[in-house]
Design a protein around this nucleic acid. Structure first.
Length: 940
RNA sequence: GCGGGCGUGGUGGAAUUGGUAGACACGCAAGACUUAAAAUCUUGUUCCUGUAUAGGAGUGCCGGUUCAAUUCCGGCCGCCCGCACCA
């Protein structure tokens, strides 16, 4: 019975058993404590990759472990199936996005099933299913009713060739990623989710997420970007003031009014913005430096700038110049400071001095009020600007140790803390005191008030795309924007579309657009934009929990019972977008009365796993080479080698003859370092007169990077499953590397995992039938030793799983396996240890453990077996080996009873021969005894 | 620029309340079995000196606290990630 472990036979057999017994179905009505395990669901690209394997293997470990711990586990799976790739495929290779998508789902489901994950497939859905997006449309309308959705004109990236809006990620160096056309900024009507309504709650909620990575919380906090400061007005001075009012009143178009209105209605700004426009509103986080103000700067997109440009062509030209700089981050970061003096003046509220009003390219319209006061001495940007245009630089913060009479600002602004000076009533205060005092004074003068500002903007969700959830509204000439009645949902995507022309096919569909107004019955136009696909993934976890309802997004009670997700696992790339949008959605659902989740937090525990990486290889032509095509042989090519001496000679000849010096020197360096020649067998055609039929080409090893098709460093999970089995693939991606870090896929590593699977099987198959649930409570001698070892290992395996350090659990499983081979214990103790081992392996390699369980004669399925109970008394030894240190250096060790007294231990330590030898001639000053840990003798 | 993280053998990594640094695995070396290879098994493997007993050095670098530092503190150096003209 000691034949090799045959995964190809074992794995499908158990998968069939599991499926027929329907063991992974979660029971909504269970009395057991619940546990919701979830991994970020996949986009159906058509193939599973190693990243999926790692992600789902981690979630599966948790799900299976929690099941064994007695929890009712919900572990569902589905498809995030709307999105651009389907449309692009239809454009590039023809066909229909729907067919492409659902074909891919079919193609992926089978290999995913072969990995043997404990998934409740009864809850499966795809976000492109009509039943799903119908409910999403319902949610959209509920959000609209509850003031969480609105419509406004906003700037978008417009690709003039493809006639579509592009997401920021799709704009590369200012050009459309597909067309290569220069992207325009265009104003368009867009739908927005009012995520800023929850800015504060989303920020505060982060503190309650104890089982989230600090990194993700920090990123979200930065993204929300709360800053406290002062919003205040600078009143226009003299004639300029009148002129400004005149400009505003006369030159304003309705568009300008909209912008001004939009600013005024921003929640944070609302209270502080006055009704009239006789002043410029600015926002600052450093009101303590107000006495250092030397100018006011407006954004090129500020309403005042816009109205000025209508009557002044120089302003208009300046705006055009600013727009030319481009949209790339690099261009923005390195752009010169550009300014334009409007000639307007404002009055400083404290000093009464007049300050010039400039337009500056570095002031953003999207943050604060789109206008600032410039304090060059204590802000680097302001300083650069002031130096360029000859504006005053007045220091008002004195660094410690500097003299007020001699302190000067050079080309570096002083941005750290210090004592305020040159500042009248603020003199002598520190930064925080100065901020409070300045705010109090401005408030007292009625010129402004302390406010909180957020960097977070509302979420624009309109996409001019076909393959997404249609936005369920109708535009009527008389009634305006009207929602589609609930009874008419879903607004279904028509199938008969074509991609002959660029742009959104819904927009030119013969009938989709033409509808009657649900209110007045007159001819109206259906919205043809679809929702950002991030909306789809913002509530799917709730549908999994309380789904299968057609009248509501999910059953409120059932979904609320399962939520929050206890353990969510996915990639760090979603740290902000998906994870923030979901936190917004659950709050929205809660406040619309659809979900009973007071905290609003969808994911109680989050784990972000690292990527699967692989070495890259490149040949002399500069092409990436598939790892499969790369062979290596030893330097010298004698004995162990894939190549004959003849082949080696060929490589040498090729290298010497290479024209590319850089490649040749790199290759020779590689050979020197590794002692190996890497090459590719380029063809199997025998050149005339050659003995070896193969043609070898030298290959350079490149960086170890994330698996990617274009870099050709991918390993297909299917190949690994066929060659070694699913368990081996799972085991490998969980061993060695800590889960949050990247793991490098190597052939050697896979073989190691495969060997281990065989080792376990060899151990089990040569063991006669026994009860894997047995407890050898009366063990002594070697048997007791084995028990101690097994229970200790089991404790470490358990804590490794609990704390997401699967690599340490794996190491302990190795140790337990080695111990089982080493200890000469009796059958009862062996049965206990082996039973523990099989159950410990089960979350990682469920097929192997099931096979072992059955072979040993375990009752029922291993999947149903409870997690081993650790006997705490076995974790404590009778004796302990203490290291003996002299002056902090280890000189020996001694084995003593664990409950030895400090005095006794000290006596024994000083009698140790190694200690005596070391302290010979020295005086013992002190002996430190840490019970059960160490003894350190201080001598001099 | 701002924020976060990380530096440990040839390699991945252990050592999460300061207490034997290098668990476990890969690789490598030697041996056993074999006609041979593969597989498997055994032993060794941080570096330096040394036949050995043993001694010295050692967790990026410099310093500090401590009987004791990979761990705590201060200052450098290097790498990675996120955000980025956010007032």
């Amino acid at each position: 019975m000691s034949e090799r472990y045959n995964a190809a036979d074992v794995e499908p057999r158990w998968q069939k058993v599991w499926k027929e017994a329907d063991i992974y179905r979660a029971d909504d009505k269970s009395d057991k404590p619940k546990f919701y395990a979830l991994e970020m669901f996949p986009y159906p690209s058509g193939r599973i990759h190693m990243g999926h394997v790692r992600n789902y293997a981690m979630g599966d470990v948790v799900a299976r472990y929690k099941k064994a711990q007695g929890f009712e586990v919900l572990h569902p799976m589905g498809w995030d199936s709307f999105g651009m790739p389907a449309e692009n495929a239809a454009i590039d290779i023809g066909g229909h996005p729907k067919d492409w998508t659902y074909g891919n789902i079919e193609a992926m489901k089978e290999p995913l099933s072969r990995l043997g994950f404990a998934l409740d497939w009864s809850r499966e859905f795809a976000t492109s299913d009509e039943a799903y997006y119908k409910q999403q449309q319902y949610i959209f309308l509920k959000f609209w009713e509850n003031d969480l959705v609105y419509r406004k004109t906003a700037k978008v990236n417009w690709d003039p060739v493809d006639n579509t809006v592009l997401a920021n990620e799709q704009v590369i160096d200012g050009k459309g990623w597909r067309s290569g056309a220069v992207v325009e900024q265009r104003d368009m009507d867009q739908w927005f989710f009012k995520i800023t309504k929850y800015a504060e709650e989303l920020l505060e909620g982060l503190d309650t997420l104890e089982r989230w990575p600090e990194k993700v919380k920090t990123m979200q906090a930065n993204w929300i970007g709360r800053s406290e400061g002062l919003q205040m007005k600078f009143e226009f001075d003299g004639i300029s003031h009148t002129k400004a009012v005149e400009i505003l009143n006369n030159a304003q178009t309705s568009d300008d009014k909209n912008v001004i209105e939009a600013i005024q209605t921003t929640a944070a700004n609302k209270a502080a913005v006055p009704e009239n426009q006789k002043a410029v509103q600015i926002f600052t986080t450093r009101p303590d430096t107000l006495f250092g103000a030397s100018f006011i700067a407006l954004s090129p997109d500020h309403p005042l700038t816009l109205s000025l440009s209508k009557s002044d062509s120089k302003v208009e030209n300046f705006r055009i110049n600013c727009a030319k700089i481009g949209t790339t981050e690099e261009a923005i970061a390195t752009a010169d400071k550009l300014g334009f003096d409007t000639g307007l003046k404002v009055k400083h509220p404290f000093t009464g001095e007049t300050l010039p009003v400039w337009i500056a390219n570095f002031v953003l319209m999207g943050y604060g009020t789109g206008a600032i006061f410039g304090c060059p001495a204590h802000d680097q940007r302001d300083l650069d600007f002031a130096r360029k245009y000859g504006l005053d630089v007045t220091p008002v913060v004195l660094p410690d140790g500097e003299d007020a009479s001699t302190y000067k600002i050079g080309n570096e602004a002083y941005t750290s803390e210090g004592t305020l000076f040159n500042s009248d009533f603020l003199n002598g205060l520190n930064k925080d005191e100065g901020i409070s005092a300045a705010i109090a004074k401005i408030e007292e003068m009625g010129l402004g008030k302390g406010v909180t500002n957020y960097r977070l903007r509302d979420w624009g969700v309109s996409r001019q795309r076909y393959w997404g959830c249609p936005i369920p509204v109708i535009h009527c000439g008389d009634c305006g924007v009207v929602s589609v009645p609930e009874a008419d949902l879903p607004v279904a995507l028509p199938y008969d579309i074509n991609f002959d022309k660029p742009g959104n096919p819904l927009d030119r569909h013969p009938t989709f657009k033409d509808v009657e107004c649900p209110k007045c019955g007159s001819p109206a136009r259906r919205e043809t934009d679809t929702l950002d696909t991030f909306a789809d993934s913002s509530w799917y976890f709730a549908r999994f929990a309380g789904g299968n309802t057609d009248d509501r997004p999910f059953d409120k009670k059932i979904a609320s019972d399962w939520l929050p997700v206890d353990q969510y696992v996915g990639g760090i790339e979603h740290a902000v977008l998906h994870l923030l949008y979901s936190r917004f959605f659950t709050r929205g659902l809660r406040d619309c009365g659809l979900l009973d989740l007071p905290s609003g937090e969808p994911f109680a525990g989050l784990f972000t796993q690292g990527m699967v990486t692989h070495a890259t290889f490149m040949n002399i032509h500069g092409d990436y080479v598939l790892p499969d095509g790369v062979v290596e042989y030893e330097k010298g090519a004698t004995g162990i080698s894939y190549l004959s001496d003849y082949g080696a000679g060929l490589i040498h000849a090729q290298i010497e003859g290479l024209a590319d010096n850089k490649f040749r020197s790199n290759y020779l360096k590689q050979v020197n370092q590794t002692g190996k020649y890497l090459c590719e067998i380029e063809s199997l055609i025998r050149p005339i007169g050659e003995k070896d039929p193969r043609k070898y080409t030298p290959v350079l090893q490149g960086d170890v990077i994330k698996m990617s098709k274009s870099k050709k460093n991918v390993v297909d999970p299917n190949d690994i499953i066929e060659g070694y089995g699913a368990d081996v693939a799972r085991w490998f991606v969980l061993s060695d590397s800590p889960p949050e870090r990247d793991v490098e896929w190597t052939e050697a590593g896979v073989i190691g995992a495969w060997r281990f699977a065989n080792k376990v099987w060899a151990l089990v198959s040569e063991t006669p039938k026994l009860n894997p649930m047995s407890v050898a409570s009366r063990a002594s001698g070697d048997a007791l030793e084995l028990r101690r070892f097994a229970h200790k290992a089991m404790a470490k395996i358990t804590s490794g799983i609990e704390s997401f350090r699967f690599n340490t659990s794996v190491a302990q499983i190795y140790e337990l396996t080695n111990a089982l081979k080493k200890y000469k214990a009796n059958d009862e103790a062996k049965a206990e240890a082996l039973g523990m081992l099989i159950r410990a392996i089960a979350p990682f390699m469920p097929h192997l453990s099931e096979e072992c369980w059955a072979h040993l004669g375990g009752e029922d399925l291993c999947y149903h077996a409870p997690w081993p109970v650790i006997d705490e008394s076995l974790l404590v030894e009778d004796t302990v080996t203490l290291p003996l240190q002299v002056n902090g250096k280890r000189r020996g060790e001694m084995t003593v009873p664990v409950d030895i007294s400090k005095e006794e231990a000290e006596k024994l330590a000083l009698a140790d021969p190694a200690v005596i030898r070391t302290i010979d001639g020295l005086t013992v000053r002190k002996v430190i005894v840490v019970p059960g840990r160490i003894i350190n003798i201080v001598a001099s």
